[in-house]
Design a binder for these strands. Structure first.
Length: 883
RNA sequence: GGAGGAUUAGCUCAGCGGGAGAGCGCCUGCCUUACAAGCAGGAUGUCACAAGUUCAAUCCUUGUAUCCUCCACCA
């Protein structure tokens, strides 16, 4: 047989791109009719604001592993890719570009601005797509979607209108979070609270009748121009008598009343609080309860407006504050100023301080939606991995408040509401409206706001499959099987997808929710441009290849734990890939000139059965790990099977036959190896996709592409526990022999006569005999004699021993007796520890009576082994001393 | 103010009721005809601290300490 020769070293650049193109061309990522239930994933759509970072690499690597695994199990499999228009974030990117050109978006106008934003979207989309391809993501590009696609836009309208019709969407004037820089309202979840050092100003508010003053404490004195009352607790004995009295608001002289409201805490400050309904959520509620006037003192850009004294107008809150305080001091209104740290809300996109701002906005009523989402968890329709996130999810749903969905932006889905300028009616419609259905006027205007970006992404799992139409995709692949996401968007996205899906389709959008950790640097810090600690996926792929990146991430992704990495972390995967490459190279070299033969169980040796058994166990371990999303366990099963079992032991053991066997022996051996190798490629394919495909194509026994081959399944018939036990015993002999040689500092080239003496019932006896040559080569023996009967004269030989055997080395030349003595006493010490622990347990009647029978058996065995080691080691010490 | 996570070898982390593990790093010896991105051998741990449950605790319970996240309208 003519075998393909592999390049001397593993170079992923030689084939990764080619293989991806070939998969794509052959349509390998498309769902196929298979057996069993469908398996589908929708990719969390990356924002078109930039390029993918390591977090995306982790997330998509894991999805790729899952999807490839299930594709190979034969289930009809679909992975839907796509991108998100990312409302504010993308608009900010474009506005920043404009700023460099000295322009604002208003200078361009809505239409031109949107044109420009579409260009940015296209550019980033193309980069993102090519990144995903470089990573090897096996998603079905024919199913690719964008949140502002025609179809998805239709889904957004359907969702909006149908919620409106059910009374779950309403418009109203409320105090919302408002980012002055982005110029838009935000939802509660889009505000990040951070502790900041601040001051607590104690301000005197004089009574209108001149009978003195009261003191209120505030962190924001500049909002006092919007004060419309001062409140005390109704049960506060100190202030019972002054409720109803009138105060003169400092710096303006406007009169406000003292009111009583139970929300006031008596303990904080003076127990008196100024009420500014337009600029504080508590005060807003309090104002409503008490029918207070609402005075807005801010412009939309965060500066003070015409409701403030002239000198402060058009200054930002931060600029105005010291001026106001200064003027208060001048007027003798400041009682004292204390340091006071407090939480300040910041915009999650631009980090500007968010203002509570009174404005007309659209909201989704969340209570009933949240209840259904809660129900889904209670019924176990959804399961979180790891489970602890279920608490986080429930708690958020319990305390949910209505969702502000209107944004004063241009980039996004226009709110499907039209206002008739003639009859003043509001028209909410799935289709564009050009004529008022009430008065037939054509004088209509569409609401200028767009929807929160999450209002389209919360429909993602079904809008991408064609909803609201009843499509074949929806029927075949919905609900999806699992969702892989980081924990930072559980609220923004995951919870809301569950709500929308339960609301519109009466079913959870996915069953398993896999929450990954975040990728951080080696110090545990978030990766960011400003810190310069980012690790770029493309750079890693360039250095080590996509397989090395994917495998390493998988190996490190322990259930929900953050992944700490630097560039060097990926050497691990790279070395492993190199190992696979070289092992294959060696086997293909040995295939040259050989014939593949058919073989059956009867022709398998103990070693052969052992490696099949190990492969079989690995398949089981991987299955178990994958089913509970324990990626690191799956990766270590792959790693230790291929490297430790196959390379270190099996291939080593086969070398003698491959090099010195008869033609028949060689043919049989290489046939078995090719079979194992072919199965290994299938086993490893989800984790190292490119290299396994590249190698698979070069195997004489391959069939099509490995990506669509069947995944090795655990088979009870291929499990050989006896053989496994024997091989483990053989490994033990070799290891202890090697250890002895190393301790005695015997040069590797020095070949020695070695005699192995086994005890009665030593189970691996026949194996050691049949693998004589192998063992002999591993322990550097010139001759290796298995001495069952104890006939060999071992006088003067140095022994190494373990359970059931002694291995004598005939060392005539000078050896390091001291070193060996040291080793032996340390062995005795260890064994004595073991022995005493076992004896302690066995002499304890409670242990013997209560513990499981196997546990007791194990202790007995432990004891016997320890005793054997101690006894032999003592003999050996005597022996050494006598030399 | 709530909630969660972390604390195991020099570093990064697995494990989780019965003899302490991996990768990297380190030491020693090897270019053994696949791989020096390799092979072999080796050292290193009161499994944060303190109680409790148990025949048995790194693992379960309860506290304590340090670190990290998330949530929360107390001015």
């Amino acid at each position: 047989m003519k075998a393909v020769e592999l390049a001397k070293s593993y170079n992923p650049k030689d084939f990764e791109e080619r293989i991806y193109a070939s998969w794509k061309e052959k349509g390998e990522f498309k769902p196929r009719k298979g057996k069993g239930e469908h398996f589908s994933i929708v990719m969390p759509p990356p924002n078109v604001t930039g390029i993918l970072h390591m977090g995306h690499a982790l997330n998509n690597s894991l999805q790729d592993i899952i999807i490839r695994y299930y594709r190979m199990t034969g289930r009809p499999t679909l992975w839907v890719p796509g991108t998100d228009h990312a409302g504010i974030a993308t608009q900010n990117v474009v506005e920043r570009q404009l700023k460099k050109e000295g322009l604002r978006r208003q200078d361009l106008g809505r239409e031109k601005f949107l044109e420009r934003t579409w260009q940015v979207k296209e550019k980033h989309h193309d980069i993102i797509k090519s990144q995903l391809e470089k990573m090897g993501c096996s998603c079905d590009w024919d199913h690719e979607r964008f949140t502002m696609d025609e179809g998805l836009s239709r889904a957004v309208r359907e969702a909006f209108v149908s919620l409106y019709e059910r009374g779950l969407i309403y418009k109203g004037k409320y105090l919302v979070n408002y980012c002055p820089k982005c110029g838009t309202a935000l939802s509660d979840d889009e505000v990040e609270h951070e502790a900041e050092p601040g001051k607590l100003y104690h301000v005197r508010y004089p009574y209108s009748d001149g009978s003195g003053y009261i003191i209120v404490a505030t962190t924001r004195p500049e909002t006092m121009f919007g004060d419309t009352a001062v409140a005390v607790h109704p049960d506060d004995e100190r202030y019972k008598d002054i409720v109803g009295k009138s105060l003169d608001l400092p710096l303006t002289g406007r009169k406000i009343k003292i009111i009583a409201d139970a929300f006031v805490s008596r303990e904080f400050g003076t127990g008196m609080v100024k009420i500014t309904p337009a600029h504080d959520p508590n005060d807003f509620e309090c104002g409503k309860r008490n029918n207070l006037e609402t005075i807005n003192v801010l412009n939309p850009d965060g500066t003070l407006n015409e409701n403030c004294p002239e000198k402060y107008r058009n200054l930002s809150a931060v600029e105005a504050r010291p001026l106001v305080v200064e003027d208060l001091e001048k007027g003798g209104y400041i009682e004292k100023i204390e340091d006071h740290d407090h939480e300040v809300g910041h915009c999650y996109r631009c980090h500007t301080i968010v203002e509570p701002y009174l404005s007309d906005q659209w909201f989704v009523r969340m209570r009933t939606l949240a209840d259904k989402a809660m129900e889904a968890l209670k019924k176990s329709d959804i399961v979180f991995y790891p489970k602890r996130w279920e608490n986080t999810y429930s708690r958020w749903l319990e305390s949910i408040r209505d969702w502000c969905i209107s944004r004063q932006l241009w980039w996004g889905h226009r709110i499907p509401v039209w206002y008739c300028k003639d009859c003043g009616k509001e028209i909410v419609s799935r289709e564009d409206v050009t004529e008022c259905p009430h008065c037939h006027s054509r004088n209509l205007e569409q609401d200028s706001d767009v929807l929160d970006t999450w209002f389209s992404s919360w429909l993602w799992p079904f809008s991408t499959l064609g909803w609201p139409d009843k499509t074949e995709d929806l029927a075949s692949f919905f609900p999806t099987s699992c969702l892989v996401s980081a924990y930072d968007i559980i609220f923004f996205w995951i919870s809301r997808m569950i709500m929308s899906s339960e609301e519109f389709l009466d079913v959870a959008p996915f069953k398993d929710i896999v929450i990954t950790g975040l990728v951080r640097d080696k110090q545990g810090r978030k990766m960011s441009k400003s810190l310069g600690n980012g690790v770029d996926p493309l750079e890693i792929i360039d250095m080590y290849g996509a397989d090395a990146m994917k495998f390493t991430l998988c190996y490190m992704a322990a259930q929900g734990q953050d992944v700490l990495i630097d560039n060097d972390s990926f050497k691990m995967g790279s070395r492993f890939a190199n190992k696979i490459w070289n092992a294959t190279r060696f086997l293909l070299m040995n295939l040259e000139g050989r014939e593949l033969v058919k073989f059956d169980v009867d022709s398998l040796t103990t070693m052969d059965k052992w490696i099949y058994s190990q492969l079989n166990s690995a398949a089981l371990e991987i299955k178990t790990a994958m089913e509970s999303y324990r990626f690191n366990d799956a990766a270590s099963a792959v790693y230790s099977f291929f490297w430790n079992d196959l390379c270190d032991w099996y291939i080593e053991a086969s070398k003698h036959k491959l090099l010195h066997g008869t033609d028949d022996e060689k043919n049989l051996q290489i046939s078995i190896l090719m079979d194992i190798l072919e199965k290994s490629m299938r086993l490893m394919h989800p984790f190292l996709s490119f290299i396994t495909e590249e190698i698979y194509q070069k195997l004489p026994n391959h069939d099509g592409d490995v990506i669509v081959q069947s995944y090795p399944e655990y088979d009870e018939a291929l499990s050989y526990p006896d053989e496994v036990m024997k091989v483990e015993a053989l490994k033990d002999i070799v290891k202890s022999a090697r250890s002895l040689r190393s301790n005695l500092q015997i040069a590797p080239e020095k070949k020695l006569k070695v005699v192995l003496r086994t005890s009665d019932g030593f189970k691996a006896l026949d194996l050691v005999k049949s693998e004589c040559t192998f063992v002999s080569s591993l322990i550097g023996a010139s001759s290796f004699i298995v001495d069952e009967k104890g006939k060999e004269d071992t006088a003067g030989a140095v022994p190494s021993s373990g359970a059931g055997y002694e291995c004598f080395f005939y060392v005539k030349d000078a050896i390091d007796v001291e070193a060996e003595l040291k080793k032996l006493s340390s062995d005795i010490e260890k064994a004595e520890k073991l022995l005493s622990s076992a004896e302690k347990k066995l002499s304890n009647p409670q242990f013997v009576n209560n513990a499981k029978a196997e546990a007791v058996e194990k202790e007995k065995k432990k004891k016997a082994e320890a005793e054997e080691i101690i006894q032999k080691s003592r003999e050996h010490i005597e022996l050494l001393k006598s030399i």
